[in-house]
Each structure stands twice: as C-alpha cells, then as structure tokens.
Amino acid sequence: MKISLQINASPYQHQAADSAWHFIQAAILSGHDICRVFFYHDGVFNALRDSRPPGDERDVVKRWSELHAKHGVDLVVCVSSAQRRGLLEQTVAKKLGGYQSALADGFRIAGLGLLMEALIDADRHITFGD
C-alpha cells in the first residue's frame, strides 16, 4: 500500500513525530511504500539542522535524516510554514540574510502542492499531531 504522512507537531513536546517514525519503521518492514512525509505547522521543526539533544536522548532530526539515507523516504518541509518559523533553506537564507540552511540532511523544501500530490497519489494519508 502507498502511504503518505503529514506531521503537524514539533518534536520532543508531542508524541506525533515519535509515533510517525515508529509507524514508518513498521510500515516499511511490512512491505508498504512510504511515498512522502510532509512536515506542516510546527512539524517543520523536525527538520531543524542545529538541533542537538543530549547524547543519552533520541535524536529525532537525525532519525529522519537516517530514514531518508537508508530508505530514500521523501521528506518535504512546507516552505511557508518553515519561513514563518525561521527555518530557511539555503537560497532563501541568502536572500533574507539568515543562516546557510536551517534544514538537516535529507529534507527538502517545497510548497503545499506536494502535499496535495501525495494526498491524491497515496492509498492512505495519515496525519500525526493536531
């Protein structure tokens, strides 16, 4: 089954990102295709490159990057949600005077069109976080 996901909550405060990550692990193990993970609202903080949790804690951002590296899952961060919250990717950062890129490896930035594409394309779309 083709499954797309949407993550609406930031990591660490809510369970959404953890639940989604574990769901994806189980889905891939069961042979399902995760066609896209779309980060919206405060969910964009899942892509924060400079996130540095203490060494004895789970690293949510790194986990996403590894998921992309290992399984090629398409991790898409909504551009307007991200810019509102100060997460600028390289080209926008240069224009607006921010950091090089606030996005961790494996994430790409795009518009809501890619959310709609996933909704239409996937057999199931599952939202984590409210």
Binding site: G111, L112, G113, L115, M116, E117, L119, I120
Partner: peptide, 10 residues
C-alpha cells in the same frame, strides 16, 4: 490547505 485543495480540483 483549503485553497490549495481547491486548486488541485479536489
């Protein structure tokens, strides 16, 4: 999201 869905003929 509402407007984008409409733009995608949903």
């Amino acid at each position: 999201i509402v407007l984008m869905a409409s733009a995608f003929d949903q």
